[in-house]
Design a protein around this nucleic acid. Structure first.
Length: 822
DNA sequence: TTAAAATCGCTGGTC
DNA sequence: GCGATTTTAA
């Protein structure tokens, strides 16, 4: 056998070889000439990786035949099982790398998986079909694009493009965009696609009154437009696969035959269309109805993506879908202390319809109890968390072992500001992805127009960016002509400038940019894609636009454009690069040095930290009101799973907090402690008042969890308010809607106790603590801050500078975060 | 075409 | 109460 095969690049096409019988044959027994994994593990020796696994893990790794569901609780070594299983299959030579399909949800997961398998078996992993659902779907779709009415160089649209396209359709259909916003309709269409529904299969009753009852028609038109544009949105990548497989059984048969082993990560997050895709592929080619060797790994308790189409039902139904499936539970937790585990388990036990797992650990030490703390408001909450982080930092605790996990993105701001004031390095995880950034999208739009003159959406995006006198009026005329003659915009525009339909000025500008594109297309033939991009960004005036811009983000944008050019070096040509921009490109978090992580609970899934802070556990915020309003009990249970995910991120320390008052959308609202706090098993938690209150409350705090709030009397509070057993819970809270306006009983009592008045005093500390380090900053000096932009120093206290920012107001920050303006 | 004014929306966010 | 987007006026 040809050794060359095993060193092919990852995206190589297995169909290109093994031409003899049309399809790569898999060995039924040990393959004779297959090189051992990594070239150094003898074929028959027991592989070293099995020894360090526990019994359940080993079972999951070794049960390679037939359908297997691995229920892997938080911290039970799920990824380890998956990677080892892959290594085992390769090691036993049960399949060649390209006969294995391994699906993940994120590129990051795919990358990690590939690295870890490679660590075990070396280069034998090359050629594996390992990637995200979308990347693998794209790979298959490009091969057979004609069969679903596309060309194989189709473009992949992102949300911006989708909305722009839909807006055009709504306008043409004369559907009032005020009443039926494009954002909402695209969401509806997306949900249909998640369910594997093409326009003809959507039930009319499902569409209801949406878009005046024309939702299905709009969906249909949207799909037609995509087809003429030779484009797909993300949902199509799988939906077209389903159509392809259904209408071409021979093609499906090929892939069924090809994929001898299928592995799926995070199975609880699959949507219907992903599920159907897997189910189609997971049949043995030779024996039509026999389920193949499919192994799904997941945790129903960590299903937190229902809102974007994920169906927990998929994992709950696995045994029915694949009769005779083996279900293996990984319940031994290697991450958290018994107290943390106990708190999390007690909480999640309140959910119904679970597959059920009992996590255990044999850690001898109980560890710290989960600390639950009530505070006056969000500011105090942030301050206390900040103080603790500072104390940990002082003790030499590594900052990258600390995370603040919040329910909603806006909550990070308060903590961010606190970190800035304290001078604690931090990072906010999960900002906009690299390819979603304005400048990167603009640059790719230029390249897309060059590569695909029919790409109207890209053309529109940059035709007047930078402004070059091709405005709305001009484009409207071009649009009309294009629609009339069924031509792409750039072609219609070219025809138009040859007539005198346009005003001379507009005609001149439009001709200029069209000529530019012609020139760039010719250049594309001659120079490589990097040089081409440089030329385009330069000659179009795009770079100049940002150079001249005075916006604080402008230098960053130029920086990103440079980074884009560097990133392009990894790709062979323009087409390859463009695919990766939309599908694979990550924001690189080249974080330097250890930092505290601030992020949402959603983005924390899969991570772990020594210490985790979980602020904002208040009714309405967490569980979020909208989750409950829109999805009732199911919504509430998903929120509870989110809480479970949060707690189980912690290894040794977990601190939950809630505030009595919080500012939401600008106005102050009184808040009740989250019902999840009531649901935590008391023996694993430690309820605490903040110090000022604690001193004066005369005991009872530990007994009565709300004693400090409602007075030290213990259990005597009334008003059916935040209490257990008051008949309010579970289910929809009595105070349906939103938070009550400030002034509930708790609010009043707290105010009387003088709780709120302490806040400004402590706030002032920032000015005089930590002030021995001198800086060379002087009052009145101009400066620049990464986040707040330019400003003037008004006060210097050690290394703390009070700065009046031009845009962001007055703030006190650590000098190290401030630069001199250029 | 640009700048100011009004309006919207506001849970999570991969590909 | 803020920021982004969209409408309106100049």
């Amino acid at each position: 056998m040809d050794a060359r095969r095993y060193s092919r690049p990852i995206m190589s096409d297995p169909f290109e070889y093994d031409e003899d019988d049309g399809w790569p044959a898999a060995p039924s027994g040990p393959a004779p000439a297959y090189p051992g994994p990594g070239g150094n593990v003898a074929a028959n020796a027991a592989p070293p990786w099995l020894e360090s696994l526990n019994e359940a893990q080993r079972e999951a790794v070794l049960a390679v035949d037939g359908p297997v569901l691995v229920l892997a609780g938080a911290g039970t070594g799920k990824t380890r099982v998956l990677t080892t299983r892959l290594a085992q299959i390769l090691h036993e030579r049960r399949a060649k790398p390209y006969q294995i399909l391994c699906v993940t949800f994120t590129n990051k997961a795919a990358r990690e998986m590939r690295e870890r398998v490679a660590d075990l078996v070396g280069p034998a992993t090359e050629g594996m079909w390992l990637g995200t659902f979308h990347a693998l779907g794209t790979r298959i779709l490009r091969r057979h694009a004609e069969l679903v009415g596309l060309k194989s160089n189709f473009t992949i649209l992102d949300t911006d493009d989708q909305i722009r396209l839909l807006k055009q359709i709504l306008e043409a259909e004369r559907i009032d965009e005020k009443r039926w916003p494009a954002r909402m309709l695209i969401h509806v269409i997306q949900r249909w696609k998640d369910k594997g529904l093409t326009p003809d299969r959507v039930d009319a009753s499902d569409a209801g009154e949406v878009a005046n009852g024309r939702a299905i028609a709009v969906y249909k038109q949207y799909q037609e437009r995509l087809q003429t544009l030779n484009a797909c949105d993300f949902g199509d990548l799988l939906l077209h696969n389903l159509t392809l497989f259904k209408e071409n059984p021979d093609v499906l048969e090929q892939y069924r035959h090809l994929f001898r082993y299928i592995l799926v990560d995070e199975y609880q997050d699959t949507n219907i269309s992903q599920y159907l895709w897997l189910r189609l592929l997971a049949k043995k080619g030779e024996v039509a109805d026999e389920p193949a060797n499919i192994c799904c790994v997941g945790d129903d308790d960590q299903s937190i993506y229902g809102w974007r189409g994920a169906e927990v039902g998929n994992i709950l139904r696995f045994e029915k879908d694949f009769p005779g499936a083996k279900v293996i539970r990984l319940e031994r937790n290697y991450r958290s202390t018994p107290n943390i585990l106990g708190a999390a388990s007690g909480l999640i036990a309140h959910n119904e319809g679970r597959l059920g797992k009992t996590l255990w650990t044999d850690l001898p030490e109980e560890g710290q109890k989960v600390r639950v703390r009530g505070v006056w408001d969000g500011e105090e909450e942030a301050r206390l968390v900040g103080e603790e982080i500072e104390a940990l930092q002082l003790k030499g605790y590594p900052l990258d072992e600390i995370a603040v996990l919040v329910r909603a993105g806006f909550q990070t701001r308060e903590f961010e500001e606190r970190m800035i004031t304290l001078g604690v390095p931090y990072r906010v995880v999960g900002g906009p992805r690299f390819y979603e950034r304005e400048e990167v999208r603009d640059a790719s739009a230029y390249l897309r127009v060059i590569a695909q003159p029919a790409d109207d959406l890209a053309f529109e995006r940059i035709v007047n960016k930078p402004t070059r006198g091709v405005g709305k009026t001009t484009m409207q005329a071009v649009h009309q002509a294009a629609r009339l003659e069924q031509l792409p915009l750039s072609i219609a525009a070219r025809r138009m400038v040859e007539t005198d339909e346009l005003k001379p000025a507009a005609r001149r500008s439009l001709t200029a940019i069209l000529d530019d594109f012609d020139r760039w297309r010719r250049a594309a033939e001659a120079v490589d894609h990097i040089e081409l991009t440089e030329t385009v960004l330069d000659e179009s005036g795009y770079t100049a636009m940002w150079k001249e811009s005075k916006k604080p983000e402008a230098p960053g944008k130029l920086e990103n454009l440079k980074e884009l050019l560097t990133a392009m070096e990894d790709y062979d040509d323009l087409a390859q690069f463009l695919e990766h921009v939309s599908l694979v490109m990550d924001a690189d978090d080249r974080a330097q040095g250890p930092m505290v992580s601030l992020m949402t609970l959603h983005s924390a899934k899969g991570l772990e930290f020594g210490t985790v802070f979980l602020p904002g556990w208040e009714e309405g915020l967490f569980p979020h009101q909208r989750a409950m309003d829109e999805n009732g009990l199911a919504g509430l249970e998903e929120e509870r799973r989110l809480a479970y995910v949060g707690i189980t991120r912690a290894r040794e320390r977990c601190e939950i907090s809630f505030a009595a008052n919080r500012r939401i959308h600008g106005s102050w609202q009184a808040a009740l402690p989250s019902r999840f706090i009531d649901e935590l098993p008391p023996k694993h938690i430690e309820m605490e008042a903040d110090r000022g209150v604690y001193a004066g409350s005369g005991g009872g705090v530990a007994e009565d969890r709300y004693g400090f709030m409602y007075g030290g009397g213990g259990g005597s509070y009334s008003g059916g308010f935040g209490s257990r057993g008051s008949g309010l819970r579970p289910g929809v809270p009595e105070r349906a809607g939103t938070f009550s306006q400030g002034g509930g009983p708790g609010f009043q009592r707290m105010k009387q106790r003088g709780l709120g008045s302490r806040a400004p005093v402590i706030e002032g500390q920032a000015d005089y603590i930590g002030g021995d380090k001198d800086t060379d900053w002087g009052e009145g000096e101009r400066c620049f801050h990464q986040k707040f932009g330019p400003g003037t120093v008004v006060k210097v206290a050690g290394d703390r500078l009070t700065i009046e920012f031009d845009k962001a107001g007055t703030k006190t920050v650590v000098a190290a975060f401030v630069e001199r303006p250029e």
